[in-house]
Design a protein around this nucleic acid. Structure first.
Lengths: 122, 122
DNA sequence: TTGATATATGAGCATATAATCATATAGTTG
DNA sequence: CAACTATATGATTATATGCTCATATATCAA
């Protein structure tokens, strides 16, 4: 069976019955993972392909410890994949829906900002 | 000019330069707003049209104070719209991208869960 | 083995935010 | 006006989470 169909029917198709707390927690968690600027920075840095931790530290300007922590969070959430090669560890985007998510959110933000800016037009 | 194009180009098209902290904060904030189970419950309850606060309190099983707080958060983020009619206040989904966001996240979660479950298949 | 490098993690502190209680505000009715 | 209803909000507490420092682990090279 398809858990997507299950969750999505629960989200969109049925009468608003109390949604399973577990399903809600899963969805909320997915959003929470994307709700940190440093994690967005890391995702952004990986848009053009896998990189090792040191490269990500340089690109994001964060400390090694902090970058490593956020990478674990993204890894555990299934957003990133991990590949070890000798001393180095390479991370890459594992969930392609991330790209569309960013598109959607950016598009929605644009509309909102343009509309808010329009308050001052005449 | 289009801030969407601006943000999205920054997210996807250019070399991973340090992204504007302001842009990152905006995107992160948008995700954070969707990262609470009770807010997801409220959004879910509004999928089939606007409802007043009392109805939302009943549907979600939350307290009046807590529901009201979360509604303010969603309102301020531009996710919901507010319409006052006499004593009652009606909330509705203002940002249609919410529907697609939920679809995307649910779809991505499904793939992940199915894949994890598959670990035990042979 | 020793030393060097890359990455991960335990512990502590600081901050953000969710839930709750009590109360405030606004609109309606008598 | 007073009483009532619907919604919002100040203040407090509890919890979660981000950041930092120091240190641990793993791999490689000499």
């Amino acid at each position: 069976m398809s858990s997507r169909r299950f969750i999505c029917r629960a989200m969109t198709k049925t009468k608003p019955r109390p949604l399973s707390a577990a399903a809600l927690a899963l969805v909320a968690r997915r959003f929470a993972v994307l709700a940190e600027p440093m994690r967005l920075r890391l995702i952004h840095a990986l848009f053009d392909g896998e990189k090792n931790v040191n490269a990500l530290v340089r690109l994001t300007g964060g400390t090694q410890a902090n970058v490593s922590r956020h990478l674990q969070t993204l890894l555990q959430a299934g957003v990133l994949a991990r590949r070890k090669e000798g001393l180095q560890v390479f991370y890459a985007i594992a969930d392609p829906s991330i790209f569309q998510l960013c598109e959607l959110v950016c598009g929605s933000l644009e509309k909102q900002l343009v509309q808010e800016a329009g308050v001052f037009d005449r």
